[in-house]
Write a protein that binds this DNA or RNA. Structure first.
Length: 501
RNA sequence: GGGCCUCUAGCUCAAUCGGCAGAGCAGCGGACUUUUAAUCCGCGGGUUCGGGGUUCGAUCCCCCGGGGGCCCA
């Protein structure tokens, strides 16, 4: 690995600071040392050193001699005494000191001539506190453990959003919140899994490459299987495979994995996003609501130690307790100040829409207008977690009819901070009705409706074997992180899709 | 897909009416044995996103293209 970097004429095009650092790397090699050693002594992590000496008074010598490592994030070199702040992976920082008296003139000069901000170093020495009381390792020996040939950005200014996303590794180096997000995300994933397992759900993995895409209304990505000489779709939802599991007798089943939707990209939508999707036999959408609330609250506790979540803007929000539940028609009624029910005619709804400056398409039915009124007038106002229930059948064409009103469906959307976080249904399990609805959607597809889906005959065959009454729920994991942290989706996804530079 | 804004040193940002392209941090040289965004003295660093045009002269004005953001569909 220790070959020369590149042709000299190429180096001439590099920024000055990289040329300087590359020259330092070359100098290390010329001295017969290794800028990227294989093995590094590390007797203690910085955390361990800190934990072992929590409250030393200033100017103390402990007699403890340690080998520590870390990235140099801060340098203060004076004539005969140098200070460097080291940081390790968990964010713990510890000061290293190099004095002329201990390391000698040559080693001190080599330190000054070699080490830049961003380099990884190893320091061997005694744990002490400085006169100002800073816990430190007073070096009697040091070595480079990895030379950074690219300078770190200024730590006094925020990186631009674009750089943070495109070079997440730099974001992670300089911004503690970026590292906290990675850990919060891991904590949420772990908690979701643990909670589901605790409740007796079985985790499965279903195909991401599919011959027929389905389970949601979204445009898919298309790819090519050479061996089969056929196009395949990246899945837009795992739903139809998870339902097959329910048919097969896996009565509580879930999957946490990636879905792909070939649609818009903005602060709340990513083409590749993580979802928890789950089905439970003999459950209804009410059961799924309780499950969803408990999952979200468990994740809040895992990240914040309480159901009170702290957003990036400093605001705090309690997601605890039970959550509000409203019907779609009730929520719209409240917003327009007039009672709206499934009996309200399209004509009357159009007048209400006009009165509230909501534009409608001429073709829309009463149910579609009610949904539009909700999305334009209500959704963004729902800050507290709210289950919005009982959508008209026209806008949930694949969902079973409501037990009390055949014009509605047993479906809810969970809205928090103005955005949809999860959705659930009492699932349609009648194979005859399911076929009729899917055929209807396919007909719309043939009529040019890109969101309508093709018929999945194998899924219908599965239903024909008999699927028990089932509740189903899907929750966006990225959205959940957004709910907990108040950040945009491009912050919650470690490496979101970006256009090539 | 449409409209508006934006792209300048490694990073974050300035640059008047079209007139020598600057600052802070970072870097380089020097001083400094207790610093904490160290301090002090000195110095270097630019394809102003790319291409074209107007002009004596373009970071600035115009056109085309690219990246990013916001709003709308």
């Amino acid at each position: 690995m220790s070959t020369e970097h590149a042709a000299p004429d190429h180096d001439q095009e590099l920024p000055e600071q990289m040329r300087v650092r590359l020259a330092k790397r070359a100098q290390v090699l010329a001295e017969g040392r290794e800028p990227y050693p294989v093995v590094v002594e590390r007797s203690h992590t910085l955390r361990q050193v800190r934990d072992a000496h929590p409250d030393l008074p200033p100017d103390t010598a402990t007699g403890d001699v340690v080998d520590v490592t870390g990235r140099v994030i801060f340098l203060r070199n004076t004539g005969k005494l140098c200070f460097a702040t080291l940081r390790e992976g968990d964010g713990t920082e510890l000061q290293a000191m190099l004095s002329l008296a201990l390391v000698g003139e040559d080693e001190l000069a080599r330190w000054k001539a070699t080490v830049d901000l961003g380099d990884h170093v190893h320091v061997h020495g005694e744990v002490i506190t400085s006169r100002r009381g800073e816990l430190s390792v007073m070096a009697d020996a040091w070595e480079l453990t990895s030379k950074a040939v690219r300078p770190l950005p200024s730590t006094h200014h925020e990186l631009s959003e674009e750089t943070r996303v495109r070079q997440r590794y730099v974001d992670l180096i300089v911004r503690p919140q970026a590292r906290e997000m990675v850990r919060a995300r891991a904590e949420v994933m772990r908690t979701l899994r643990a909670q589901m397992h605790e409740r007796g759900f079985t985790e499965v993995e279903t195909p991401m490459l599919q011959l027929v895409h389905g389970g949601a209304t979204a445009r898919p990505f298309v790819t090519r299987a050479n061996a089969l000489d056929t196009d395949l779709y990246l899945r837009i939802a795992p739903e139809l495979f998870l339902k097959r599991c329910i048919v097969g007798g896996i009565e509580r089943v879930f999957e946490i994995n990636r879905n792909f939707r070939n649609e818009g990209i903005d602060s709340t939508h990513s083409p590749e996003f993580a979802m928890l999707e789950t089905y439970q036999a003999y459950a209804t959408y009410d059961v799924m609501a309780d499950l969803t609330r408990e999952l979200v609250q468990a994740c809040a506790r895992a990240v914040f130690g309480s159901t009170v979540v702290r957003h990036a803007d400093g605001s705090e929000h309690d997601l605890g307790g039970t959550w509000r539940s409203v019907t779609l028609h009730g929520a719209v009624s409240e917003a327009v100040g007039v009672e709206v029910t499934p009996d309200t005619t399209a004509e009357d709804l159009r007048k209400l829409a006009a009165a509230h400056d909501v534009a409608l398409k001429d073709s829309w039915s009463a149910g579609e207008i009610v949904l539009e009124l909700f999305e334009k007038l209500v959704e963004h106002t729902l800050q507290e977690p709210t289950f919005v229930r009982d959508y008209p059948i026209e806008v949930r064409p694949l969902t079973r009819q409501h037990r009390d009103d055949p014009r509605l469906t047993e479906a809810w959307d969970l809205v928090v901070f103005g955005h949809e976080l999860a959705t659930a249904y009492s699932e349609l399990v009648d194979p005859v009705e399911q076929r009729r609805r899917l055929q209807e959607q396919a007909r719309l597809g043939a009529a040019g409706d890109a969101e309508a889906m093709r018929l999945d005959e194998d899924f219908l065959r599965a239903l024909e074997y008999g699927m028990p009454p089932t509740g189903g729920m899907g929750m966006g994991v990225d959205r959940l992180l957004m709910t907990l942290t108040g950040l945009g989706i491009r912050e919650t996804i470690l490496y979101p899709l970006v256009r090539s530079e």
